[in-house]
Amino acid sequence: MGQPVTSPTRVGIVGVGAIAGQYLASFPTLEHLRLVAVADLDMDRARSVAESAPVPGVRALTVDELLADPEVDVVLNLTIPRAHADIALRAIAAGKDVYGEKPLTATVAEGVEVLAAAQAAGVRVACAPDTVLGTGVQTARAAVDAGLIGKPISASATMVTPGHERWHPNPDFYYAPGGGPLLDMGPYYVTALVSLLGPVTRVIGAASHTRAERTIGSGPRAGEVIPVTTDSHVTGILTHASGALSTLFMSFDAVATRSSNIEVHGETASLIVPDPNGFEGDVRIRRLGENDWETLPVSAGYPGASRGIGLDDFAATPADQTPRASGDLALHVLEIMESVLTSAHSGSAVTIASTVERPAAVPQH
């Protein structure tokens, strides 16, 4: 079985790269968690992060030391996507619960292996994104669940950026298999769509890439050229079990969009859902027969949330209940995205084998 439940849950972070800073900043506000250790392949970086952590008593360990440490209850896996499965499986073998940065793993096959190993070991797996637990997506979900838009018909999700190499000092993995705009940014949008409209049963996709190389724009490697070996522009159509249709538009090639948001359309109204890469934002509704959009009051979600709220929610969820940011949800989202890419290359629709219950709504706090 997993580590005994403690209060608060003791967290060890593996991988303290760029995203780790956002999690570290949240720990002082997460009531069910206590950060106890950090590990990285670069021990100097691990020591620096431990020394500057916003909570006291954080130790810098090697990865092996952290995974074996009896003082760590849950491993927060912030490694790059291709390492997610390896670290998760090693943590599970050590009897630890695992909460991973998105995507769950680089491939669906790896994700299935991780969840099977966790079930066999009696430990739990959960996964980002947790932005869907904020007031933005949750207020929109409350509106859908209350019937404010009537029967949902369709949704669209749009994310456009000219590329992460403009700001990320080590962007290689964004342009390698397991990266790309869909697997990198898609989890925010697809997780939100599943939360709003339920599981997906079938997808069809198309994909391309405009440039074979990218130039790093910042940091010590600025000016270095890296290859693009994965799709950098992806579109997809998702058929939900409810019958609603969602359209994805994810690009590292195009220049800009007016708003990286989601729109949900029903028989009696349309909703504008704020950027699911954030936790907050206005939810606007335009009802049939009206000429203007109305901003809905916040009615659900964790207010003032930041990265790590999903791990905190996970720690607060009893072991016999499914956490909102569950591994099953992450696997379903990963299968949707992988299948869109499979469809893009085969030219045929792909049936989604997995399914999942919509995660429990977050009431207004």
Rank of each mutant, 00 (worst) to 15 (best):
W293V: 06
D145Y: 02
L30Q: 15
V340G: 03
R211G: 10
I336P: 13
R141P: 03
L89A: 08
L182G: 08
S48I: 03
S218N: 07
E280T: 02
I272C: 05
H265C: 09
A241R: 14
A353Y: 03
A222P: 06
G180I: 06
V112R: 15
P297D: 05
T158Y: 05
V350P: 03
S299M: 09
R211Y: 06
D40S: 13
I80K: 15
V340T: 02
A192N: 04
G95K: 15
F252N: 04
E335T: 06
V273H: 02
I285A: 02
Y189N: 09
S232K: 03
D73S: 13
V273A: 05
D282K: 07
A305S: 07
P227C: 05
T139R: 03
I216G: 11
T201W: 13
P171N: 06
P276F: 01
H233T: 06
A256I: 04
R90Y: 09
S306A: 05
L238H: 08
V200G: 06
T342M: 00
L104E: 08
V108D: 12
G122C: 04
G186R: 12
S156A: 11
V63F: 10
S242V: 04
V11N: 10
H168Y: 08
P169T: 15
E110T: 01
M159W: 01
D282F: 10
E338P: 05
G111A: 03
A206P: 00
P303G: 15
I352R: 00
A212D: 11
E267D: 14
T158M: 01
S7K: 00
F249Y: 09
L104V: 01
V112E: 15
S259R: 07
D292G: 07
P276I: 07
